[in-house]
Amino acid sequence: MDKVLSFHQGRLPLLISMPHAGLGLTQAVREGLVDQAQSLPDTDWHIPRLYDFARELGASVVAAEYSRFVIDLNRPDDDKPLYAGATTGLYPATLFEGEPLFKHGKEPSADERKAYLEQIWRPYHETIQRELARLREAFGYALLWDAHSIRSLIPHLFDGKLPDFNLGTFNGASCDAELAERLQGACAEAQGYSHVLNGRFKGGHITRHYGNPAEHIHAVQLELAQSTYMEEVEPFAYREDLAQPTQAVLRALLETLLAWGRERYGK
């Protein structure tokens, strides 16, 4: 495999994970995709650009290089479903609209997918594990922000239009309740934006697996409606006029996260 992730080590007790921002494809996946999947429509588009202030803020950042069409880094390695109803798995077989992802008989082989698990999925999760362990040892706690985005209208996955900011804490299991309340407050102060806590998106594998308040690791997923910062149709253009005010809200959320940690743990 080529480079499977990018990682930047910061100076604060915060790790930002971007598991669905990658655009890389293996040869088998590229050759097998149906025509409507060639543009990678289910990507979390422009997430590294949207969070380009995070390094200056002092956060550590890990981002995927390969597309979720190769392997989904936010699913468990045993591929157990995380949501009731329509969803996608460790090795996605459908687009978000429910249509087949691969041409008939052109899916990657079992051996190829085993290689994706070992050479793409595992390094990403080993990076998260190491960095959270380092942060907890250095600060006494660690904060994990799992950064996602999605089209605001996908009838196959959810009814109606998605709220702008969709916070997920696995129904309160992945982070302290007071922290979740403060994040909701920060969203409520952002005029012109809607938000929800533990709505359609409660947090995927990363949030659920690593968030452990009893061990002083607090994890939150944000599923951001793409209508807040980009065009949701091809060519999926970044909209600076939309993105700038949205970035201000994102910064406020991360600063709220960090301020809570300093108050709770003293550093």
Rank of each mutant, 00 (worst) to 15 (best):
V4W: 02
Q221W: 06
L33E: 05
F96G: 15
A252D: 02
M230T: 02
W121N: 03
D241R: 11
Y83P: 01
N166Y: 09
G160H: 03
L101Q: 05
R182Y: 01
F53K: 00
Y210K: 09
D52Y: 02
E240M: 05
E137D: 12
Q184A: 10
Y116Q: 11
L82H: 09
A110C: 06
E56Q: 15
Y238H: 08
T43M: 12
W145M: 00
L157Q: 13
L179M: 10
S152E: 11
C175T: 06
A93F: 07
S67W: 07
H218G: 11
A115E: 15
E137G: 04
R239W: 01
Q9V: 07
H218K: 03
L197P: 02
T87A: 13
H195R: 06
A54S: 11
P213N: 10
E181S: 14
G172T: 00
P19D: 05
A237F: 07
S60R: 07
E126Q: 13
P92W: 08
E65L: 15
I71T: 03
G204K: 02
T246F: 09
A259C: 10
G160V: 05
Q244C: 13
I120R: 10
R30D: 13
L167W: 07
F102D: 00
T94N: 07
L254I: 10
H195L: 08
L167Y: 06
L132T: 07
L258S: 05
I217S: 02
G98N: 03
E99M: 08
Y193R: 10
G199A: 04
R55C: 13
A252T: 13
S67L: 00
R239K: 09
G168I: 09
A84V: 12
A84D: 07
L90W: 04
A93M: 14
R122P: 04
N198L: 12
V233R: 14
H209K: 14
L33P: 06
H156P: 03
K106I: 03
R151N: 15
L90S: 08
S227K: 11
H195S: 15
